[in-house]
Amino acid sequence: MIEVKEVEKKYGKKSVLSGMSFTAHKGEVTCLIGVNGSGKTTILNAIMGLTPFKKGDILIDGKRLHKEMYEKIAYIPDTMTMISSLKISEAFEFMNDFYTVWNQEKAQSLLTFFNLTTDMKISELSKGNKAKVNLVLGLALDVDYVLMDEPFSGIDIFSREEIANVFTSHLIENRGVIVTTHEIQDIEHLIDKAILINDGIVVKEFNAEEVREEQGMSIVDVMREVYRS
């Protein structure tokens, strides 16, 4: 379980996270929904120890982040995490050198699934294909938790479909997934829990199937209700 407790962060005088709290569980897809600038990326960076925060606490399976935990939790940010002058094979080699949980076979099969080959140079790939390589680098780590930041943004429709397939595949089986988006349509039926974020706090946390069953509302309906009030 990933527990985010009352996390606060400021950039200068501007508050980006103002006491954010939520939990994400193993075996579930948790989706952080909010407009750009609502603090989605910042909280993922904070969970990964890539940006410090002032107050609050973040626990992963009850423990604070330390360096060994990068073998338990992987992050696929909305930006390339590998040197683009490398070939994909060299990027894989780099991952294999540093992570004991790197799964070369999984990486290879994912790459094939995305119609890419290891001799390709990252810098020569299209934006969508770069995003896929980034995804492979994160998903081929045999970790318990995977964080994905805006996996669908700025990507063509076919790549979006391929990436959406990841959510129904064995790749995330039994893992805890946190995914952020500002457009819910792509993954509306793929997520378990939805967390609506606005101005650095959680405004609503709910189970998608429960609201459909108990209130006959879609995720967008709930968003409309929450953001209009």
Partner: peptide, 9 residues
């Protein structure tokens, strides 16, 4: 590319 993400992780 923002390789620093990878390095720090």
């Amino acid at each position: 590319n923002t390789f620093i993400y990878r390095l720090f992780m």
